[in-house]
Design a binder for these strands. Sequence first.
DNA 1: CCTGACAAAAGTGTCGACACTTTGAGGATT
DNA 2: AATCCTCAAAGTGTCGACACTTTTGTCAGG
Lengths: 231, 231
Amino acid sequence: MDIMRNLPATNSTKSVSITLTDRLFDTLQKAIVEGEIPSGSKISEPELARQHSVSRGSLREAIGRLEARKLVERKPNLGARVVTLSYEQLIEIYQVREALEGMAARLAAQNMSETEIEELQALLEKHGHEIEEQHGQAYFQKQGDLDFHYRIVQGSKNQQLIGLLCNDLYHLLRMYRFQFGMRSKRSQQAYDEHHYLLNAIVSRDPEMAELLMRQHIRSSRRNVERMLLEN
Amino acid sequence: MDIMRNLPATNSTKSVSITLTDRLFDTLQKAIVEGEIPSGSKISEPELARQHSVSRGSLREAIGRLEARKLVERKPNLGARVVTLSYEQLIEIYQVREALEGMAARLAAQNMSETEIEELQALLEKHGHEIEEQHGQAYFQKQGDLDFHYRIVQGSKNQQLIGLLCNDLYHLLRMYRFQFGMRSKRSQQAYDEHHYLLNAIVSRDPEMAELLMRQHIRSSRRNVERMLLEN
DNA sequence: CCTGACAAAAGTGTCGACACTTTGAGGATT
DNA sequence: AATCCTCAAAGTGTCGACACTTTTGTCAGG
């Protein structure tokens, strides 16, 4: 119902987390995504617990959830480490996104309400202006792009799909964007692709929507591949 | 590497779980999937802890993981309940499967080794014999079908994809099969479809493999839809 | 100098107890 | 009889302590 309340940027699990473990989880997730806790580093439970003034028990529950989101890896009796990012894993994520968001676009073309579509059109138009003004200030790739995709996923109305993309994959992807410094000069092209896709949704053409979304993500992936191979 | 060690039927997280929480998690997951703990029922931590002779702390960690797999739902201060199954959710799961396994088939056509393909052929042939002998004894839909799909997912070599399908979705799906009593007389048709799909993989035709997998899952979904609408 | 045994230190796994929240039964008021 | 209040009972959230495992650092023997 209140899709608008779920801000894409501030995607904390609850708007205001009640339990200590919840807040701790949000804090740690942010710290990991933004690289404050370096990727690949070991996590010492006693130390982290002291730093955040919580008991080890609560910390452990938080770490458990981070593990479920694949932000940390745990081995019995050996402790937890923040995941190490790799080129290969990033490609894998794009492949999964292509499949899932393609389906999301298909369903969105069927299930989005007229008002949702209008809002999405307004959002896209706003992006267009920002690109003109700021001349592709990397804002687009980083936040605007996620915004747009987020809405389409929500528009699919498929809770399973929404959960997988917005909980499991979204944060991993953001982590890569943060730490691999992925800004692109592809703003204009991405914007155009979003436009084509939106047209397909307006026309209620599921087949075309899926096709265009998959092409869009593939082309975004190729962009990342090129960028990373330059290093 | 040791794909063969990961038996589809006995999909415990580790071959032998070391920690108490791990074993408890496996036990509870099995109990929930097979309906021993009824779907929709409330979970009392003290009671369950006593039943399994564990402390509440360990139990809570196990429940946390079950929540991550969407087998239980938790609300702060109100406790946890086993998920309630619904027709709508089942459809959603099939849509996600169509997307993910379609991609898996595509990747499997590219990445499966020759020996893996041969093993898969042997497996399928065995299924064929079983169908002839037992005259579609519901065995196929329930285990053989999962077996086949499991191998293809593994064959994609995409760890993200494997994780999502074999950890997050697989168990939910098994739960539906158990509790909705989903046996079908579609064994022969499913077997045929598996055959076509395998041919595409043998020919290393990713496009065709994805197409056939998606058709296969769609038709399986329609079968379920028909079956449930009879009630 | 290197290697391997052994003990101390640090870290993880598990537990029982306490504090706070919700539930529910019983009684007082209208 | 119905509604609201109160307070005990049950349940969840959080904590600190103990047991067991892994790591570290030291020393003896080669």
